[in-house]
């Protein structure tokens, strides 16, 4: 089991850095349209923020602040959102994952595809972040004889 780090410096720096890392992860996800970035990279950055929190502040505190069930939920929610983005255009007369047929009146085809890419990137980010944190939690969870 991961204990809280004994050095006060590391605890304070970790507390200060985690929100910035999470913010940077969100920025990388939503900046994917215009520069290097996107769901995969941003999701991994979000996961590193959570893992830093777990490593420096100990499992008890970290599991209370950022519950491990939330990570699994985020992974499943991201996957479901991605699947929904595939199914909804099918219902409204398009092909699977054809964002141009999203049921939003008043938007042009280009805008709908732009929007669809954004939603899919967020879904990928949620899924990658959740899966990475879940893998870390299950690998670090054992306290029997490791």
């Amino acid at each position: 089991m991961i204990q809280k780090h004994e050095s006060i410096v590391i605890q304070v720096v970790a507390r200060a850095l985690v929100p910035l890392i999470l913010l940077f992860g969100v920025y990388v996800i939503v900046f994917g349209h215009y520069g290097p970035g996107g769901g995969f990279q941003g999701g991994v950055i979000l996961a590193t923020g959570v893992i830093l929190h777990r490593l420096c502040l100990g499992r008890d505190f970290s599991h209370r602040t950022l519950p491990p069930g939330l990570a699994g939920g985020a992974a499943i929610a991201g996957l479901l959102l991605f699947g929904l983005m595939g199914i909804v255009p099918m219902v409204f007369g398009g092909a699977f994952l054809d964002y141009a047929h999203l049921p939003l009146p008043g938007y042009s085809t280009v805008d709908l595809r732009y929007l669809g890419i954004g939603i899919v990137e967020v879904a990928i980010g949620l899924a990658v972040m959740g899966a990475s944190v879940v893998i870390f939690d299950s690998l670090a969870g054992g306290d029997s004889d490791a």
Partner: peptide, 8 residues
């Protein structure tokens, strides 16, 4: 798609 980043 209106997206300048081709990879995305």
């Amino acid at each position: 798609t209106g997206t300048p980043n081709l990879v995305t």
